[in-house]
């Protein structure tokens, strides 16, 4: 049962990941990435991290990728596809690099000896939140600061150049 679910959603994740990088239309790329993220969220549940799964959908699919779509539609990038030819050589080298990279990564991940997982109880939400607000309090605060900085930076960057004719 669990293996069937894993195989199904792993396939979905990989196929949609390939669609993300190959589709000429950025809107479809974004929507494919949502499918990948959703499949990964299911895998998170399988791995005993339902909180992260919900967070992944809420934050990534529900907010970040909507921003992507928003920007794509705002800039009307549909007309922008295939503006410049990509070199054949570059694609080959990139593909070769990716394959090599995958090989090395997979080999090294599999080569590391690890104990087999026993029947462990999943980490409960209480344990997670206790850790977050005690042991990880400082990183948590820093993340808050980071998000504040990002909000300000995004506002400043996306603002129209200081033109007096469109004062808000």
């Amino acid at each position: 049962m669990e293996i069937a679910v894993f195989i199904l959603f792993a396939l979905v994740a990989v196929i949609s990941a390939i669609a993300v990088i190959t589709h000429p239309n950025p809107v479809y790329s974004t929507l494919s990435l949502i499918v990948t993220l959703f499949a990964t969220a299911v895998l998170f549940v399988l791995l005993g991290a339902p909180f992260l799964a919900a967070l992944q959908i809420l934050l990534y699919a529900g907010a970040i990728l909507v921003l992507f779509l928003f920007v794509i539609m705002l800039l009307n990038l549909r007309r922008q596809r295939s503006t410049s030819p990509r070199g054949r050589g570059q694609v080959t080298v990139a593909a070769l690099g990716a394959v090599l990279f995958f090989g090395t990564l997979a080999a090294s991940l599999l080569a590391t000896g690890r104990p087999e997982p026993g029947a462990l109880a999943p980490v409960s939400l209480h344990q997670l939140s206790r850790a977050l607000f005690s042991h990880y309090l400082l990183p948590f605060q820093i993340i808050g600061l980071l998000l504040l900085v990002a909000v300000i930076a995004a506002t400043v960057l996306a603002r129209r150049a200081p033109a007096p004719e469109e004062e808000r």
Partner: peptide
């Protein structure tokens, strides 16, 4: 589940 209302918000955000 533990996750409860998070699931509601996550699905609603879609």
């Amino acid at each position: 589940t533990d996750t409860g209302v998070m699931l509601f918000l996550a699905l609603a955000s879609l």
